[in-house]
Computed example of a mutant assay.
Amino acid sequence: MFTANDFIPTSYSESIESGNFQWSAPSNIALVKYWGKKANQIPANPSVSFTLNNCKTITKLAFAKKQNTDNFSFDLFFEGKPKEDFKPKIQKFFERIEIYLPFLKNYHFTIDTQNTFPHSSGIASSASGMAALAMNLMSLEKALNPAMTEDYFYQKASLLARLGSGSACRSVKGQVVTWGQQTNIERSSDLYGVEFPYNIHENFKNYQDTILLVDKGEKQVSSTVGHDLMHNHPFAERRFAQAHENLDKLIVIFENGNLDEFIKIVESEALTLHAMMMTSMPYFILMKPNTLQIINKIWKFRNETQIPVCFTLDAGANVHVLYPNKDKESVLQFIKDELVGYCQNGQYLCDEIGTGAMQL
């Protein structure tokens, strides 16, 4: 298991003047939610997520050596157009990771990024965006240090991604990824995400996630603010303990394929996340009336058909509808018949479990 100091390089064997890399990295959806963090993007509790396949960010990184090495230097383009308002976030990211990538000030970077899902569709793009950027930066470091092992490459990429956006560390590698120390999960770490190390039942292969876009507006409360509200939260300690308990239960469920138990944990986790926001000070209700309509429809449908479909939520109003691949036809029909009317402009995205970042 690597410590943070293991990721600080001493020297590089190669030098490189200029070049470019391109990576895609997916979004992910947490089953056990991470909510609340300590200093340096360390999670207050462990989490586990499904890596998505279709909702991803594609980022091209071009770099060229420069004379002045006093400052970070980069241009940022989103879908081909300069994106000034995102630059402070990249600046802050570079400041956080410079200790791990001491070459950053030696180059001028051109970051060209785009999403495969509609912008401000209410899908968190910070996870996929920061993961894609981290993969590109690691490709440059690997060019400077070709002896780097694959294991080190991916774990360091995950560590860097985490320093950009906590959940980004779960978008680097693997179908099911855990992040945060958990006694019963080998090699688990607060520093980076790890591929779930145990058996996963056939029931979860090609698991589907249809994302219902209930509200595509700007987030009412930023994740950073939301996480900070856990510091003095009256129910924080119990919540952190619950996350550990639910993750332990999922280890067994992933192995035995018990979808009824899976549904209980996943839906309870989603509602708990929102309960934490409703009971913080200041407090927020991020669900919309249509979110609740959808949840009730899913419960009714599941009850009537016995099809193991369930929902989860991020820190917003959109609903992720999770179900096994074998039930795809019936669930999609149900979504078209009964749920689309609750989506903004009837919009939804079909996704499924993917495997992580890919070099293009």
Rank of each mutant, 00 (worst) to 15 (best):
C169R: 09
A64S: 11
L191G: 09
Y348I: 15
G164C: 12
F21L: 10
L101K: 00
S126R: 13
G180Q: 11
N325G: 07
L339V: 09
F117V: 07
Q114S: 13
G193F: 06
P88D: 03
S268K: 14
E267D: 12
R302P: 12
A127M: 02
I111F: 14
L259I: 13
S13Y: 00
G129I: 09
M130F: 15
G193E: 04
N20H: 15
Q91I: 00
L313Y: 10
F254G: 01
L52A: 05
T355F: 00
E14P: 04
T110S: 15
S121W: 08
R96D: 08
T272L: 12
L163C: 06
K56M: 14
I16C: 14
K37W: 12
V266T: 08
V309Y: 05
K156S: 05
L163D: 13
K326H: 02
E202V: 02
G217Y: 08
Q91L: 00
D337N: 14
N5H: 06
E141R: 11
A64K: 15
L133E: 15
T69G: 02
A168H: 10
L76N: 10
T69I: 04
E195D: 11
H233V: 13
D112I: 07
W299F: 07
D6W: 03
Q333A: 07
N53E: 15
V266P: 02
E79F: 01
L133G: 12
A131C: 11
H274P: 08
L349V: 11
I211W: 07
V225D: 04
L259E: 10
A236W: 04
T149P: 00
L137V: 05
M135Q: 03
I97T: 00
N206M: 15
Y198L: 06
T59S: 14
H108L: 01
L52T: 09
Q181E: 15
P289N: 05
Q22C: 13
V32P: 11
A143W: 00
T224H: 10
T355I: 01
E237L: 14
Y198H: 06
K56T: 13
N5V: 02
T51M: 15
K216V: 03
I211T: 12
S139G: 10
Y12S: 04
E267H: 11
T224E: 14
T291I: 08
A147W: 02
S223P: 04
S27Q: 09
T355Y: 00
W299E: 13
L191T: 05
S268F: 06
S47K: 09
I97D: 01
F74G: 09
G346Y: 01
S171M: 08
Y154K: 12
Y348Q: 15
M230Q: 12
G166I: 02
L313R: 06
F63D: 06
E195P: 05
S188D: 12
T113G: 13
T57D: 11
G80P: 06
V48S: 04
E245C: 14
S222G: 06
L212E: 07
S27Y: 14
F109Y: 15
Y207S: 02
L250N: 05
K89H: 00
E304T: 08
Q242N: 13
P324Q: 03
F72I: 01
K87N: 03
E186N: 00
F196Q: 08
D112W: 05
G226A: 10
D190R: 02
E304R: 05
L313G: 04
K60I: 00
S15L: 11
Q208I: 08
D190K: 03
D215S: 04
